[in-house]
Every structure is written in C-alpha cells, then in structure tokens.
C-alpha cells in the first residue's frame, strides 16, 4: 500500500509536472511531495502555476507541515525538505549535487520514514540528483518509477536513476498517471 509519493525533477519539470497534475483525479488520495530544482530567489510563482493545472490542492511546504491525504506538496526554494513520518521538516544544510532543495535528501529521508509504503518518481532533469535517493527507496522496500529517458525533455536525470538501481517501471510521460492509479488506487482506474 503506497502511502506517500515523492517526485524529483529539474530541467523540463514544469511541463512534466503540470501534465501529471492535470491528469490526477480529484479523488486521488495518496499525497505527493515534489522537489523541482529552481533558483533560490524564485518566489511563490511555481506553486500558483502548479495549482492552476491541478484539481488537488497544492501547498508550498513549511516546517513541520503535516502530511495529509489528497494534497500536493512542493519544496520551497533554497530549503531541503525531509520527511518525518507524519510531517515535513526543513533544513538549510549545504547544497547536495549543487541543489537545494535536493531530491536525494527528500528521497533518503522519506525512505527512512516510509520504507515499503513509499513510491519514488524521477522525471526529466539535467543532473544526477535523485539517483542515490531512488536507490535508497528500493533498499527500504519501496517502489521506483522513472520517466522513459527517450521521451523526457532532458534524459540525464531519468537515465542516471535507471543506472543507479533496479527500477520497477519505466514509462513515458502520458502513462505515468495511469501507472500511479494502478499502483496506488486500483479502484479509481
């Protein structure tokens, strides 16, 4: 049973994320936590953009924000996001692979807290961030889903994730939501 989905992306992520959010039904109850690499000074534009294509409410993460069903959570600019079972925690520790927020930091801590009830999703992107984290999710018994590098706007990030661990599914962008429904909410298909 998947209780949390963690998503990582960088270059090209905005298009991929808006596509996925627009396809998710309003009844999709598994919460999603998203790291999208972005400039440290970017304000709240991204959360507004994502909200405009989502039926589910989109929140920018604040320290100790509870994780609730049916919500999309976005990492704030210039903070790492960590998962502590029923809530998020933040840090301003050094960048990891030149990134803060870091996908690895989110994935590692979520794997630690959620173990086998976690699903990690890597989308288009231009760095190796997320590869280590997806490996940690697999090691903790969770599921790994990766956007097909051949159809990704930038293949580097999904290719690095596939090389790092034995992922469960590699699918093109348009098949991601059907796969999430199959894995998290078979009754909604």
């Amino acid at each position: 049973m998947v209780e949390l989905i963690v998503v990582g992306t960088s270059l090209g992520g905005l298009n991929a994320l808006t596509h996925i959010l627009s396809q998710l039904p309003a009844t999709f109850s598994t919460p999603l936590a998203v790291v999208q690499h972005r400039h440290r000074d970017s304000e709240h534009l991204l959360v507004n953009l994502l909200q405009s294509s989502s039926r589910l409410p989109v929140f920018e993460i604040e320290d100790k924000l509870p994780i609730q069903p049916g919500a999309i959570y976005l990492a704030p600019a210039d903070y790492h996001v960590l998962v502590e079972r029923d809530h998020f925690a933040l840090s301003v520790d050094a960048q990891v692979l030149h990134a803060r927020p870091s996908i690895d930091v989110l994935f590692d801590s979520a794997a630690d807290s959620y173990g086998p009830s976690l699903l990690g999703l890597i989308l288009t992107g231009a760095s190796h961030d997320g590869a280590h984290g997806l490996k940690a999710i697999k090691a903790a018994g969770g599921l790994a889903l990766v956007q097909d590098p051949a159809t990704a706007e930038c293949a580097i990030m999904p290719a690095a994730a596939i090389a790092a661990t034995r992922v469960d599914y590699v699918v093109q962008l348009t098949d991601i939501v059907p796969k999430l429904l199959e894995l998290c909410h078979p009754q909604l298909r």
């Binding site: 790492h80 960590l82 998962v83 502590e84 925690a89 840090s91 520790d93 930091v105 590692d108 801590s109 630690d112 807290s113």
Partner: peptide
Amino acid sequence: YAPASLKRR
C-alpha cells in the same frame, strides 16, 4: 533536535 536532519548530519 528534528530527527531527519540530525540523522543526516
């Protein structure tokens, strides 16, 4: 201390 960031450090 918050356990997740503490563990990481």
